Simulated scan of single mutants.
Amino acid sequence: MEALRLVLLYLHLIGFGLLLGGGIAQYLSARLRINAAMLWGAVIQVVTGLGLSAPLRDGDEPSPAKLVTKAVIALLIFVMVFFSRKRESVHRGHFLAILVLTLVNAAVAVFWR
């Protein structure tokens, strides 16, 4: 089970990289729109996050409050990305909110013990 958890964690980090990297690339290009990397990153984050929240470890699971917080943030990011993906441009505040929520979700994962 540890191997499965590590594979899910690896894929989860790839999703984070796609989401954040795709967002930064779009932000630096000055054309704020949702690209495919951001969409796939959000999808990967939600799917692997659900897999990682399953009780695969022997008593070493994160707290339910942390899991719910991360799930809510990840679903919010996914909804914001999914429903904005076909727009020619996204409002600056909306786009920055996606990037900030992505960083907040990573901060919750790292700093909440």
Rank of each mutant, 00 (worst) to 15 (best):
Ala36Asn: 01
Met38Asn: 06
Ser89Gly: 00
Ile73Val: 13
Pro62Gly: 12
Thr48Pro: 05
Val108Leu: 01
Asn105Met: 07
Gly23Val: 07
Gly49Arg: 01
Met80Phe: 13
Gly59Ile: 01
Phe16Asp: 04
Gly93Ile: 05
His12Leu: 06
Ala30Gln: 15
Arg92Thr: 14
Leu67Val: 15
Tyr10Asp: 12
Arg85Cys: 11
Leu18Met: 15
Tyr27Asn: 01
Phe95Ile: 07
Arg57Trp: 11
Asn105Trp: 02
Gly59Ala: 02
Ala3Met: 08
Ile44Gln: 01
Gly41Met: 04
Leu8Ile: 10
Ala71Asn: 02
Ser53Pro: 00
Leu96Ser: 11
Arg33Tyr: 14
Leu96Ile: 10
Lys66Gln: 06
Lys70Met: 14
Leu99Ala: 05
Val72Trp: 09
Leu67Ser: 13
Ser29Asn: 13
Ile34Val: 15
Asn105Asp: 14
Ala37Cys: 11
Ile98Arg: 01
Gln26Tyr: 05
Leu50Trp: 12
Leu18Lys: 04
Val46Phe: 14
Trp112Met: 08
Arg92Met: 07
Lys70Thr: 08
Val90Arg: 01
Ile73Asn: 06
Phe82Ala: 15
Leu101Tyr: 11
Tyr10His: 10
Asn105Gln: 09
Gly49Ile: 04
Val7Phe: 13
Ala54Asn: 02
Pro55Cys: 08
Val47Ile: 15
Val72Ser: 09
Ala25Leu: 14
Val90Leu: 04
